[in-house]
Amino acid sequence: MDIAVLDDDPMRAMQLERALRRGAHRCMRFRHGTALIDALRHQGFDALLLDCDHADADVRELVRIVRQSFGHGVPLMVLSDTDEEAEVVACLADGADACLRKPVRERELVARLEALARRAAAPFRRAGDTGRLPDDDIPELVYGRYRFDLGDRRVWLRDRSVRLAPKEFALALLLFRNLGALVTRRLMIDQVWQGALAEGARTIDSHLSRVRGKLELWPHNGVDLRTVHGLGSRLDAV
């Protein structure tokens, strides 16, 4: 996993990086909340790890900003100096998925982050995943009324096949893979158009409009596609 870590203490940051690397995860450290927010606009992370003992950031406010701007698709854990019930409840209410008291036990930290990541990925499952070996599985992803056949690059809404152009399919799949999280225009360009568009290109908007209409990405189908002005789009479960 790619994990973003907010911590302004070099010694603590080194300990966290060591623990995460032992778990075979990549770590990107940020000393300031503004730098973390800017990075979230341009790249994706599998989890966020924020230390509340930060001299220059109100971490609880930062959690709220992350959730308001980027949704709940990315697991977020806060490292706290206390396990007082009121503090933990407040942290979770702000949008954190877990609070872990310091000093952390390295193996527990990694295990909890991995558990959060598995839970975040749960809405998508392999169709027919009942204990068969991965190579035996039909390459499909399912969410609610939607089913994606990755091999034939086809999508179904309920039991109805929906015809999507190749880039429409890629864009729809990107949105569903990031359900609940902001998908920036930069990420769309990189993943769907291989970097060959400007961020302000109307092509992106026209493709989003066609994907919304063809797949009926509306609340009565359990999802809602929203535009986050100047940043990108977010597909939310409703």
Rank of each mutant, 00 (worst) to 15 (best):
A4H: 05
V5M: 02
L6K: 07
L6E: 09
D7M: 00
D8Q: 15
D8N: 14
D9C: 11
P10C: 02
M11D: 06
M14P: 04
Q15N: 08
L16P: 03
A19F: 03
L20M: 09
G23F: 01
A24C: 02
R26L: 07
M28E: 15
M28I: 11
F30N: 11
R31P: 00
L36Y: 11
D38M: 10
A39W: 00
L40D: 08
G44M: 02
F45D: 07
L48T: 04
L48W: 06
L50G: 12
D51R: 09
H54T: 08
H54L: 09
D58M: 11
D58T: 03
V59W: 01
V63M: 06
R64I: 10
V66G: 05
R67I: 02
S69G: 09
F70G: 13
G71W: 01
H72S: 12
V74I: 10
M77E: 02
E84F: 03
E84I: 00
L92W: 04
L92F: 07
A93Y: 01
A96I: 05
C99Q: 00
C99E: 00
V104T: 11
E106N: 05
E106W: 04
E108A: 09
V110C: 08
V110Q: 06
A111N: 09
R112C: 00
R112V: 03
A115I: 01
L116S: 07
R119G: 00
R119I: 13
A120L: 05
A122V: 10
F124C: 08
F124W: 12
G128M: 07
T130H: 05
R132P: 01
P134M: 09
I138V: 08
E140L: 09
Y143I: 15
G144I: 07
R147Y: 02
F148T: 11
D149R: 15
L150D: 03
G151F: 07
D152L: 12
R160C: 14
V162T: 13
L164E: 03
L164I: 01
A172Q: 05
L175N: 12
A181Q: 10
V183H: 04
M188E: 00
M188G: 01
I189W: 00
D190F: 03
Q191K: 08
V192I: 11
Q194G: 11
A198W: 01
A198D: 04
E199T: 15
G200I: 07
G200T: 11
I204N: 08
S206L: 10
S206T: 13
S209I: 02
V211C: 04
G213I: 03
K214P: 06
W218A: 14
W218S: 12
G222Q: 08
D224S: 12
R226K: 15
T227M: 11
V228T: 07
H229A: 06
G230P: 03
G230V: 14
S233A: 10
S233F: 10
L235D: 04
D236Q: 09
D236N: 14
A237S: 11
